[in-house]
């Protein structure tokens, strides 16, 4: 089973890399298989880690007290869980063109919840914390505990954040001093994009090295080992 797994993984890896030459049936086979297997995997994960614990079990807990022969422990309060289950079932309205509008109800609840939660979350996590991180070193400067190099870094950070924000500030025309501030902002953004690009390239190359290592050591190494035992 393990040997078959290595051969299968090697075949699929080479099938995907064959796209580097050009589009071909091996690549298309691997591509469509990848879609199918991934969708199947996430269906199973959502059923076992999403649907059963968050939809089926609350539903069963809600209706169980009203099942014949079972004592009514939870009472009527458990039935409140039937509301989100009913809202979730409205998603199936999307399967019929005449009833697509039913999707709006569960969507509205999800969008309303998402919007409501994101306002305090964004304020607390990003705006307050990031602003605090930017201006906090100036308290150390005031206390005289920051080194000269630390002061330069703190000032550079403040200039970078202010100029980057200026670049994204479209309520005033970018002319005169604003234009120069936004130009400095572009320079900081380019450094940020360069760093992101460098890290992304290295991440992808690490994956490539891992796949080549698999092909050379696990797959070809296994074949050489086999040949060694035969001859």
């Amino acid at each position: 089973m393990e040997i078959f797994g290595i051969w299968l993984a090697a075949f699929l890896t080479l099938s995907i890399y064959s796209f580097l030459y050009r589009d071909n049936p091996f690549y298309r086979f691997a591509e469509y298989l990848f879609i199918g297997i991934s969708v199947g995997y996430y269906i199973v994960i959502y059923i076992h880690q999403g649907f059963i614990p968050f939809a089926w079990e609350p539903f069963w807990a809600a209706v169980k007290p009203f099942w014949p022969g079972i004592p009514r422990e939870a009472g009527w309060i458990g039935l409140i869980k039937l509301i989100p289950i009913a809202l979730g079932l409205l998603f199936f309205g999307g399967l019929s063109p005449r009833h697509t509008w039913l999707i709006r109800y569960p969507s509205a609840v999800l969008v309303g919840f998402g919007s409501g939660i994101s306002i305090p979350l964004m304020l607390q996590t990003f705006i307050f914390e990031q602003t605090r991180g930017t201006v906090e070193p100036f308290a150390a400067i005031n206390a005289g505990t920051l080194s000269p190099w630390g002061i330069i870094e703190a000032v550079l950070m403040l200039i970078g954040v202010a100029c980057t924000l200026t670049y994204f500030f479209f309520s005033v025309e970018h002319r005169g001093p604003v234009k120069w501030l936004s130009k400095v902002g572009i320079a900081f953004l380019m450094i940020g994009f360069g760093a992101a690009f460098g890290n992304t390239v290295m991440g992808r190359v690490a994956l490539l090295i891992q796949r080549v290592d698999f092909l050379l050591n696990d797959w070809i190494g296994m074949i050489i080992g086999w040949l060694g035992t035969i001859f």
Partner: peptide, 22 residues
């Protein structure tokens, strides 16, 4: 330093955008 300051600028801008959109 320069990378973090650019990211902070982007994060602050995106956060303000998300709040206004919400």
């Amino acid at each position: 330093n320069p990378n973090l300051s650019a990211r902070r600028g982007i994060i602050l801008g995106v956060s303000l955008g998300v709040i206004s959109q919400s």
